[in-house]
Simulated scan of single mutants.
Amino acid sequence: MMNNVGLPGLLLIIVWVVNVVAFWKLLPRAGMSSYWAITTIFPLFAAILFWVIAFKRWPNDPV
Rank of each mutant, 00 (worst) to 15 (best):
R57G: 10
A22T: 14
P59M: 07
V15R: 09
F45A: 15
V18S: 08
G31H: 09
R29L: 13
T39R: 01
L12D: 09
W24H: 14
N19W: 12
L27G: 03
G31Y: 08
K56L: 09
Y35W: 14
A54F: 08
L27C: 03
I53R: 00
F50D: 00
G6K: 06
F55G: 12
I38N: 01
W36L: 15
P43A: 04
L7M: 13
V5W: 11
V15Q: 07
I48R: 02
F50K: 04
V17D: 01
I41H: 02
W36S: 03
N3V: 01
A22R: 15
W16E: 06
L26Q: 03
W36C: 07
A22W: 13
L27Q: 04
W36T: 04
I41S: 09
M32E: 15
T40A: 11
S34T: 05
N19D: 08
A47K: 01
L49N: 07
N19T: 15
D61F: 00
F50Y: 13
L11V: 10
R57K: 15
L7Q: 09
N4E: 10
A47E: 04
R29D: 07
G9S: 04
D61T: 00
I14T: 11
P28C: 04
P8Q: 08
V63P: 04
A46F: 05
L44Y: 12
N3M: 14
A54G: 08
N3G: 08
V52F: 14
I13M: 11
A37H: 03
I48Q: 02
W36V: 06
T39E: 00
A47W: 07
W58L: 15
V20K: 02
L12T: 11
A37G: 02
F45Y: 14
A37I: 06
R29Y: 00
L10H: 07
T40H: 10
I53P: 00
R29T: 05
A37N: 00
K25M: 14
M1C: 09
W24K: 08
K56Y: 02
W36R: 11
V17T: 10
W24R: 13
R29G: 15
L11P: 05
G31A: 10
I48K: 06
F45V: 06
K25S: 10
L26C: 02
Y35T: 10
A30M: 14
L26S: 04
W16R: 05
V52D: 01
I38G: 03
V63C: 12
F42A: 13
S33Y: 06
T40V: 13
I38P: 02
Y35E: 04
A46H: 06
P59R: 03
I41Y: 12
P43C: 03
V21L: 14
K56T: 15
N4V: 00
L27T: 07
L44F: 15
F45P: 06
M2L: 15
F23P: 04
V20Y: 08
I13N: 10
G31D: 07
M2N: 12
A47D: 01
N3Q: 11
A30W: 05
V5K: 13
P59K: 03
A37E: 00
A47T: 03
P28N: 01
W58C: 01
F23E: 05
M32I: 13
G9V: 02
L12V: 10
A54N: 11
P8Y: 14
P28A: 03
K25T: 09
V18N: 08
W51S: 06
T39S: 10
M2I: 02
I53H: 01
F55V: 08
A22I: 14
